[in-house]
């Protein structure tokens, strides 16, 4: 008799539940859209379009990660660019110290994000509401200042590392790699969102005190969510450095905060899948507008963000769910 590959009943239940979750039409449609864009870039062969999609993929990774931690828990984290920059600078540092393997670099960037995220989360997530948000807001400024103040101490050739290796031999391969990584992150975060872990995170957003008074200590859940999320942000930062072949202070920039949050809100906060779909729309549109409107594009997006929060606070997926109900 063949032995059962999953002898534990709880593991079998877990796998069955995961299988059920991943049969969701929305999840499958999201993966199909990601695959379609990767294929389209290959067919069109336009470097600008492919680069735009690479940028979209990086922002999607950031948006999905932000949505998983902040969107689900309601703890607004403005520290995203810090962990993004941390990933980028780790890549530069490691390359300058002789590590050239792309998978190893990306894995280490993920690890740096995890460790950095955990170290940030442990003291700050004991604070609630605006205090946590305020501390997170300071992080990118601290990152930028440290680099500017100590760049010679870190052995940086300029205010950043240049001449880094490419993520993949061609732009299309880079896009494929990032799309694959995003599919993996999206699947992981989506499975967690649909599990009891995700239910606790959503409970934190609704009323954390009720959770505590009913025997659920929210702190370990929050720390786990923010640590995991910042791991992905670190990975994205590393991938960004390998795409531009440069890791500089621009990686701590405001855009790596504005666009991910805008994308997450447009997709529907806490929806995870919505962020992936909205990411393509926002970044492709912004890339097109940059060509025609230049620096006014940012102003346009800031205005769109205000309108979005006022008139579509639940985002596109929230709207779809309302219509379906």
């Amino acid at each position: 008799m063949a032995s059962d590959p999953l002898p534990s009943p709880s593991l079998r239940r877990l796998v069955r539940a995961a299988g059920h979750t991943l049969r969701s039409r929305l999840y499958l449609a999201t993966l199909a859209v990601m695959a379609a864009f990767a294929l389209l870039a290959d067919l069109l062969g336009s470097p600008y379009f492919t680069l735009s999609l690479i940028l979209a993929s990086l922002y999607i990774a950031l948006a999905v990660a932000w949505d998983f931690s902040s969107g689900l828990t309601g703890y607004i984290n403005f520290g995203l660019p810090f962990f993004f920059g941390l990933g980028a600078f780790s890549t530069g540092y490691l390359v300058y110290h002789g590590l050239h393997s792309i998978p190893a670099l990306l894995a280490l960037d993920f690890g740096v994000g995890l460790v950095g995220g955990g170290l940030f989360a442990l003291p700050t997530l004991r604070l609630r509401g605006p205090f946590f948000t305020f501390l997170s807001l300071l992080l990118p400024l601290i990152g930028t200042d440290i680099v500017l103040a100590f760049w010679t101490t870190f052995g940086l050739p300029t205010i950043g590392y240049y001449g880094l290796p490419f993520l993949a031999p061609t732009l299309e391969d880079s896009l494929l790699l990032l799309s694959g990584a995003n599919a993996l992150f999206l699947t992981g975060f989506y499975l967690l969102r649909e599990s009891r872990f995700g239910l606790v995170l959503r409970g934190i957003r609704d009323d954390e005190e009720v959770l505590e008074s009913q025997g659920i200590s929210s702190f370990p859940y929050k720390v786990a969510a923010f640590t995991l999320s910042n791991g992905v942000v670190g990975f994205a930062g590393g991938a960004y450095a390998l795409t531009t072949t440069f890791a500089g202070v621009d990686a701590f920039g405001f855009l790596f905060l504005l666009f991910p949050i805008l994308i997450a809100i447009l997709g529907g906060t806490g929806e995870i899948l919505g962020a992936a779909l909205a990411g393509y729309a926002v970044i492709l549109l912004s890339q097109y507008l940059y060509l025609t409107m230049g620096s006014l594009t940012l102003l346009l997006f800031a205005g769109a963000a205000i309108l979005l929060v006022l008139f579509l606070p639940r985002g596109l997926l929230g709207l779809l769910r309302k219509e379906a109900a």
Partner: peptide
């Protein structure tokens, strides 16, 4: 928990 269904409250 406003966004939870009755069943989700019990499950949680």
């Amino acid at each position: 928990l406003r966004s939870f269904t009755v069943a989700q409250h019990i499950e949680l």
